[in-house]
């Protein structure tokens, strides 16, 4: 992730971190970007996440 794309993503987020926040925030985002890359592989078409909605019985 380049500094430029971090800056553009930050602008799009509407958040206003302080200047002092930026290095740590960028490091945290970099960690999340690396983690996200791990889950972008193919998933079975019908595989549902475990947070499925369950309605109570009447």
């Amino acid at each position: 992730m380049t500094d430029k794309s971090f800056a553009s993503r930050l602008a799009a987020s509407g958040l206003r971190p302080t200047e002092a926040d930026l290095p740590k925030l960028q490091a945290l985002v970099s960690d999340l970007d690396r983690a996200a890359a791990l889950v972008r592989g193919p998933h079975p078409y019908e595989e549902e996440p475990l947070s499925a909605f369950r309605l109570p019985r009447p």
Binding site: R9, V29, L32, V39, R40, E48, P49
Partner: peptide, 15 residues
């Protein structure tokens, strides 16, 4: 900074 599809797929991986 996490997009919606990555969140859903993280939950799938969690399962």
């Amino acid at each position: 900074f996490v997009n919606g599809a990555d969140y859903v797929n993280a939950q799938r991986q969690r399962a």
